[in-house]
Computed example of a mutant assay.
Amino acid sequence: MQVLLVFSLIIMEIPVFTVDAFSNLPFRGNPAAICPLMHELTDDLYQKIAAEMNLSETVFITSINPSDNFTTENVNPKLVFETRSGDLAVTQRGEGYVMDFPLNPPTKQDANEFKDILKAAVGNHPIQDVYLCPITKKLLVRLSDSCERSVLTSLKVDAAALQRSETSGRVKGLIVTMRGSPDCQPGYDFYSRYFAPWMGIAEDPVTGSAHTVLGSYWSKELGKKKMLAYQCSSRGGELELEVRDDGRINIAGQAVTVLQGTITL
């Protein structure tokens, strides 16, 4: 007797978009993958998809009402996300988006307490300020005003050496910044780069959270509420900042979709 066994293979198709944030040009800014879902997946599958995309962030959006679709819901220009840092509102404004973040002021530090991490990050280049934000555990290092922008852009930071230089747990991210050139177009008030090997990120292309610290510091240094910033990673990204009187900061930027496809599982 012959028995015919038929196996049914269920194929799942997940739409995926790659968006470059804080840029109006492709292949610049902060790349992120976005997957709209009709139902939730397992944590293991989320992690596997994120690893496959291999980008700074991978976001999964699930429809609350199964009868809705992603072309008809969320037509409001303002969305509020529940995050570990509290509610994060994002508002569409013209060609870009404005994010409402808490402001994270840093406090001045004795540079001698961070000599190892400073050596690993900036070598023998002169520094002007060292500040630490205890809330975000981001260390802000300001290069001397005598430094050219090329000093910042040419830094070769060894992620492993940087991580070894600080093991106390008080630092989880390093910001290196310097005064900008507001008199030259497009008029950046300050420049920065961001490294977080303690979180598995050798260098982040463009970092909104770092600018909650940078915005606070430079607002006081420059005496300005509105600033234009540029993060000098290899991809680069532009951020518009507005420090508010209620202890929060608006971070605005543009975004461009560079890829649309399907993940087949």
Rank of each mutant, 00 (worst) to 15 (best):
M38D: 14
P31C: 02
S67E: 07
M38P: 07
N54R: 02
Y46F: 09
T71W: 10
N69A: 15
T42G: 03
S23D: 11
A21T: 04
E57T: 00
G29A: 06
P31Y: 07
S23V: 12
S67G: 05
P66L: 00
N54S: 04
A51P: 04
G29P: 12
A21V: 14
Q47S: 04
M38L: 09
H39R: 10
N24R: 15
I64F: 10
G29R: 09
N24C: 12
D68V: 08
T71S: 11
A50P: 04
S63A: 14
A21P: 01
E52G: 02
F27H: 13
V59M: 04
N74E: 07
M53S: 06
C35N: 03
S56C: 12
E73A: 05
G29I: 06
V59G: 14
T18L: 05
V59A: 09
N69I: 08
M53T: 07
L55Q: 01
P36G: 02
N30V: 04
C35P: 05
E40P: 01
V19Y: 11
F22S: 10
L55M: 13
V19K: 07
P66H: 04
A50Q: 01
F22C: 06
F17Q: 09
C35K: 10
D20P: 00
S56V: 03
S56P: 08
L55N: 07
T62E: 13
P36D: 11
V59T: 13
M53W: 06
D44A: 05
L37T: 05
M38E: 14
E40K: 06
L25E: 12
N24S: 15
Q47K: 05
E57M: 03
A21Q: 06
A33E: 11
T42H: 07
L37W: 03
Y46H: 01
I49E: 01
P31K: 13
